[in-house]
Structures are given as C-alpha cells and as structure tokens.
Design a protein around this nucleic acid. Structure first.
Lengths: 144, 144
DNA sequence: ATTGATGCAAAAGATTTGCAAACTG
DNA sequence: CAGTTTGCAAATCTTTTGCATCAAT
C-alpha cells in the first residue's frame, strides 16, 4: 500500500467511515491518471477496466476525496467540473486554451506572495485560491 | 438614454438583432444593481417590479450581455453562476469568504503584470483571467 | 411584411438523494 | 450485528431548446 492509499485509509477511518472496494478502486484510478478528468471521464475509465461502479458512488467518492484534499476541482468554464489529484503534488495554477481546451500548469511564487499581501491589506485570511488565465496556447495563437 | 444603454443599442443592432422591451428592462435591472447576482436573482428582481419576463429570455439575454462584455460571470464554487456588470468598471479580482459568502473586490497591478510575464514564458496569449482567493473575511476569521 | 424574439413547456446535462439490499469492521 | 455504503431510479437544479405566436424594423 502506497503513501496515498495509506493516507486515504487513515482519512476514511478517522471519519468513522469504511474502506470499501469501490473507494479503493476509485482512489487508484484517480491517482493513476495524470490528466484532468470529469466525473463522467472517471466513470468511463473504470468501466473500461470492467469495474462496474455507479455514478452515484463516483460522485459521492469524488466529494469525499475533495474534502480530504486528495483532489481539487477546477472550473474551466464548461458545464462539468474537472478534477486533478493534488496529494504529493505542488500547488499550481492554470492557463486554459479557449480554442483547443488544453490545460497548462504553471506556478509563480511572486504572484503567490502578492496574493498574501493583498489579502492582509483587507484583513482577509486566505485558505486557498484559484488563478486561471484564459487565452490561446502556443499552437492556437494567431500567428504573425 | 445613458452611455450603457447607447452602447447596448449599438451592440444589438450591430449584430442585426432587435432591441426589445425585455432586453431594455433586463439591461436596466442589471446595471441598477451593484451586487453580484444569479439568473434566478434577476428573475426575482424583475418580478418584484411586476415585470413578467420568462427565465428563457433572462438566460438568453444574460448570454448576450456576456458576449458583448457588458457582464462578466463569476464562479464562486456554488451551483449557479454569478454575474456582475463590467461596462464602465475597472477590472478586479475577488476574495470570497467561505463562511458568509461575502465578495470583496480587489485589484493589484503587480499581479496582473506577473501574469502577463508568466504567460509569455509559455507562449500563451492571455485574453482574460480569473483570480479568486477563498478564505475568511475580516468578520469571519478566527480571532486570536 | 420580414425576420428575429418571446414564452411556454419539454429537454438536457450534471449532480444529488431515498431506499432496500449488500458489505465492512 | 450495527452501522455504512452501494446501486438504482427518481428527483433536483440550472440552463437550453423547439415551436407557435408576437413584436420590431
């Protein structure tokens, strides 16, 4: 059992919940993928592996994983939420190509520091943040 | 007719569309409010003024207003979208209190500049962005 | 007169929920 | 065995859409 699985085990038990086979399978699938995915994507991935898990369980588990900070959700302007696993990964922000949908991850410590500073000026205590840059990626930008 | 109404008139006609009474009323309501609102809020506001406009028309007009950059939509993590009018207002970002839901607007030119810089480094051309800081506002933050 | 817009109700898409049956600790 | 969780289907919520009628140019 790896680090993430151990942490999940502790998290689940700590809440007085049970570690079911569905939860284990969902956790594994989520951390196996290195892409951003929707609940429906996950449903598809699991069923491709011949694992029949209901959408209800997927949604419930996704919420659980988000609550435990194993996952983070990301709104890219489309109808449904995108998820990405965060455990063991450094925080980052996103550039989102409005033409092809490509997601680019980036990180800038100076921006992070300035956010903190702006918050303090308003007496605000930041617990998390989301920065999204919308535009055209290298491949889609107008040439010239 | 004020500036915004004129601009809307030009925008609508420019697209070969018609300036209906519903569109005028919605525009007025949207710019009268200085709060963030959902489609449903707007529906309620209009009906309080005894103006019966269908939800379908509200949604259609909200999309039109967003397309014309009269409005901007904001996802605060809840189910439905929040809107705010932008015409004649400077760009700003938001702090969102996860306890009371309060929205605080702020602006930091240094952050904006760093975003541009980060984008260039990735060959990305930014057309718009969204920065949200989640946390506790002055009234809700744990004292100590 | 034309062409676009409205309102209604139905449809759609994502997510949640009630409940009986199945599983975990 | 008690208490959770699952799967199903039905329900919910927000937003979109088809269509007949109505209004703007």
């Amino acid at each position: 059992m790896n680090q993430v699985e151990e942490a999940f085990d502790r998290f689940v038990r700590g809440k007085g919940l049970k570690l079911t086979s569905q939860r284990k399978r969902i956790l594994k699938a989520v951390f196996q993928t290195h892409r951003h995915f929707t609940a429906e994507d996950l449903y598809g991935m699991l069923h491709q592996d011949r694992l029949k898990i209901s959408r209800a369980t997927i949604y419930r588990t996704l919420n659980l994983l988000e609550e435990g900070k194993f996952l983070e959700s990301l709104d890219v302007g489309k109808d449904s939420k995108y998820y990405e696993h965060v455990m063991g990964h450094a925080h980052h922000d996103h550039m989102i190509c409005i033409n092809c949908g490509r997601l680019i991850e980036f990180r800038d410590d100076n921006i992070e520091a300035l956010q903190e500073q702006a918050s303090r000026a308003h007496g605000f205590l930041v617990t998390s943040h989301s920065l999204k840059l919308f535009g055209f990626c290298k491949n889609c930008r107008p040439k010239g």
